[in-house]
Structure formats: structure tokens, C-alpha cells
């Protein structure tokens, strides 16, 4: 098993006719992912064609889900329309919505998160690289790739990876793969201050997943999500966890690229997060170059 998505998960892409959504829909198809539908309001009836694959495009998510059996969505729509697109997926009763879009107004996400309370749909992101459950084929082909991560860097195996940052996730995954160690699922939860799924939510899923043997958790400055995950791991963790926190050198009060990466009022520092990791028995990588080695030493 893996978490959240499997190689046979049926995926629809919201914003498939845009250049960003279209490009990554193609890359997912190349990776062997079951992209079964696209949604762009006003273009229903078109066909998205790539390398001999024909993906039907619908006007609404509800229609796409009903006709194709898709249960997972990847959201690539522009920031101004992203909250609506996410809630459309929730309204259609999808299991999982993965919002890649960067730059969604914070208050839109405050409303979205409130509206999702008590709903069965899980949201990953926004402002995230997405999810990859690697496949068994060459360069992990045949897996489920939702979002913008490079598929070929992965390898099927037993390490779960969860991170707020895209390129740091790739870095960790590549370190594992080049050492011959594979991944169960890699989840980018996104760099925004309000998101759908936290580090802790993903950690719980990894702890319960029989295929996942150990976990890499990558955090960054801002908020307290890493501390909350660490506190839970200290009490309930059953598998080795190693981690890295980015932003030890970031000046306070400045947003470091990600909207959520800011030290404000002395809160959310890398120092405090690393201390929480150590206290919980989580291996802390001294540099981002040592994320995989730190975990492998614990096994």
C-alpha cells in the first residue's frame, strides 16, 4: 500500500486546457498515471490528446466524476478562481483534492477550510508540488503523479516523505533514490499559512501504512505545525522519523518566498522547531545535504 493515492487512482485535472495544467497532465500521462478527465468550464466536450491518449474534458467536476469515476482532482486554476475550484471538488464528493495553485488569497483559504469541516473530501495544498506514489516500472513509471513533481527521481519503496517545500522534497527523494532507497508516497503539503492537510495528518497516515517503514519530515520557519507533529510523534510514533527545518538564517518579519514562511513575534523559528524535533526523538539533519543519510543511520 501507500497513502492517499495508489497507481490505479483515477485522477481529473481542473484547468487542463491551461498551459500549466496541460503540461503537467501530459507529464502525468507519460508517467503512467490514470488521468481520466479534465475540467475547464465552457470547454465541455473537447478532447485533451497526448501521445495517443484521449482525455475527455467536462464543464463541471460533478459531471467529470460521474462519467469517469474520478475520485481525485488536481487543481491548476489561477489564484482568483482557485477557492471556487477546490470547493467544486468538495461539492462533487471527491475523496481528495490537490491544489497546486500558488498565490491564493489567505482569506479565501480561511473560508475554504471552514466550508470543508465535516466534509469527506481531503485537501492537499494549496501552493504545493502535489503527491507522488511511485510505480514499479523503470524510473518509477506506472505510479500516481498528481501535481508538478518530477516523476523519474522516485523509486518504489518504504520511506514516506512529507514537506512544505517542492524543491526540498525533490532533494530528499533524490538523495534516497540515489542511495537505492525507495519511497511509499511523497506528499507536498504546501507553503501557505492555511492549508488543507498538516504535517501531522500525513504523519498519522504514514504511521498507519504497512508499506511505510520510516519517514522524512521537512519543515520550514513559520507557524507551529512541525511542533505539533513532533509532540504527537513523541507520544504515538512507532517508526523512525528524520527531518530538516529550512530558514535558520531567515531574517525575522520577512516572508521567504512561501507566504507561510515567516518568523513573526519570535514565533515559528527554525531553532524552536529543531528543538521540538530533537525532544521527540526525530533525527535532525544538520544540512539539507544529509536528509537521507540522517534517516538511514536510524534504520
Amino acid at each position: 500500500m501507500s497513502i492517499l493515492v495508489q497507481p490505479d487512482s483515477k485522477v481529473l485535472v481542473q484547468g487542463i486546457t491551461g498551459s500549466f495544467g496541460g503540461r503537467h497532465a501530459q507529464l502525468s500521462l507519460d508517467y503512467g498515471t490514470q488521468i481520466v478527465a479534465g475540467v475547464t468550464p465552457g470547454t465541455g466536450g473537447q478532447i485533451f490528446e497526448h501521445a495517443g491518449r484521449r482525455v475527455p474534458v467536462f464543464d463541471t467536476v460533478a459531471q467529470a466524476a460521474q462519467e469517469t469515476g474520478a475520485s481525485v482532482s488536481a487543481v491548476f486554476v489561477p489564484p482568483a478562481f482557485a477557492a471556487d475550484a477546490i470547493l467544486e471538488g468538495v461539492g462533487a464528493g471527491l475523496e481528495l483534492v490537490v491544489a497546486i495553485t500558488e498565490g491564493i488569497p489567505v482569506n479565501d483559504m480561511v473560508r475554504v477550510r471552514r466550508a470543508m469541516e465535516g466534509k469527506k473530501t481531503r485537501l492537499i495544498g494549496p501552493n504545493c508540488p502535489g503527491i507522488v506514489t511511485p510505480g514499479e516500472g523503470k524510473d518509477s513509471h506506472g505510479g500516481c503523479r498528481i501535481g508538478i513533481a518530477p516523476g523519474y527521481i522516485h523509486k518504489r519503496g518504504g520511506i514516506g516523505v512529507v514537506s512544505r517545500s517542492g524543491t526540498l522534497t525533490y532533494e530528499a527523494v533524490w538523495q534516497l533514490t540515489t542511495r537505492g532507497v525507495g519511497q511509499s508516497t511523497c506528499v507536498g503539503i504546501g507553503g501557505d499559512p492555511v492549508n488543507g492537510t498538516s504535517h501531522l495528518d500525513v504523519i498519522k497516515l504514514f504511521m498507519a501504512d504497512p508499506e511505510t517503514k520510516a519517514i522524512i519530515m521537512i519543515g520550514e520557519i513559520g507557524g507551529s505545525a512541525e511542533e505539533e507533529a513532533a509532540a504527537w510523534i513523541a507520544r504515538h510514533g512507532t517508526k523512525p522519523v528524520a527531518g530538516f527545518i529550512a530558514g535558520a538564517t531567515a531574517p525575522p518579519g520577512r516572508r521567504m518566498g512561501h507566504a507561510g514562511a515567516i518568523v513573526s513575534g519570535g514565533k515559528g523559528t527554525a531553532e524552536a522547531k529543531m528543538a521540538a524535533f530533537r525532544e521527540a526523538g526525530i533525527g535532525v539533519a544538520a544540512t539539507p545535504s544529509e536528509m537521507a543519510d540522517t534517516l538511514l543511520k536510524m534504520l
Binding site: S165, T169, G191, A248, M256, G257, H258, A261, P288
Partner: peptide, 24 residues
């Protein structure tokens, strides 16, 4: 650097080896 997380981590690793970053 490409990517915000890697850009922060790059500043951190410079400091780790005794240097100081001029920018993010």
C-alpha cells in the same frame, strides 16, 4: 536557487559551513 524551500536551505548550509548569505 530554484524554489523557496531550497533557497532558504541554501542560505542555511552556507552558514553551517561558516559563510554568510548575501541574499535569498
Amino acid at each position: 536557487v530554484n524554489g523557496a524551500g531550497l533557497a532558504m536551505a541554501t542560505m542555511d548550509i552556507i552558514q553551517h559551513y561558516g559563510g554568510s548569505p548575501a541574499n535569498f
